[in-house]
Computed example of a mutant assay.
Amino acid sequence: MKLIDYVQGRGARSALAKKLNLTPVLISQWANETRPVPPERCVEIEVATDGEVSRRDLRPDDWWRIWPELTAKPEVTS
């Protein structure tokens, strides 16, 4: 799931920001793709969203370079 889809509606952006101890503005910038999500934050987001937003979703162009161990696992789609 894309981050923008996850954070839309009912305070999800603020709730995620609070879980990660970040500002909602930064979450918005990542969700709107005006700033890339740093690799070191991707795992935190994946955990905070209970896997709904994966590292693969957050870094579609280079996830396999950053986390090569994920290439051995098939991607689960809903």
Rank of each mutant, 00 (worst) to 15 (best):
L22C: 11
A12W: 06
R10V: 02
R10M: 06
N32D: 12
P74G: 08
Q29K: 10
E46A: 15
V7H: 03
P74E: 14
V43Q: 15
E75P: 01
I66A: 10
L3R: 09
A48D: 02
P39V: 07
T71I: 12
D61F: 07
P36C: 05
Q29C: 06
T49G: 06
Q29R: 12
L20G: 02
V76L: 15
A15H: 08
E69S: 09
K2R: 11
V43C: 13
P74Y: 05
P68Q: 08
P38C: 11
R59F: 03
L22W: 10
A72M: 14
A15R: 14
R41T: 00
G51Y: 07
V43F: 13
L20W: 03
R56K: 14
A48R: 01
K18P: 00
I45R: 04
P24G: 07
V37L: 06
L3Q: 10
S28T: 06
V37I: 13
R10I: 05
L58G: 02
L16T: 07
L16N: 03
L16K: 03
Q29H: 14
S54Q: 14
N21K: 15
T49L: 05
R65A: 07
W67C: 03
L22F: 10
S14W: 08
T34V: 15
S78N: 12
R35M: 06
M1Q: 14
E69H: 14
R41V: 04
E33G: 11
S14M: 10
P36S: 12
A17R: 03
P36R: 11
V47H: 14
P39L: 04
W30N: 00
D62G: 03
Y6P: 01
L58R: 06
A15C: 03
K18T: 11
D61H: 12
N21Y: 03
P38E: 07
P68V: 04
R10G: 04
A15L: 10
S54M: 09
D62F: 03
W63E: 02
L16M: 09
A72I: 10
N32H: 13
L20Q: 07
W67K: 05
V7T: 08
I45F: 07
E69G: 05
Q8W: 04
P38I: 08
I66S: 08
G51K: 11
R56D: 02
R59L: 14
K73D: 09
S54N: 05
S28G: 15
K73S: 09
Y6R: 02
R35T: 08
G11E: 12
S28Y: 06
S54I: 01
R55P: 00
W64L: 09
P74Q: 11
T71W: 01
W63S: 08
S54Y: 00
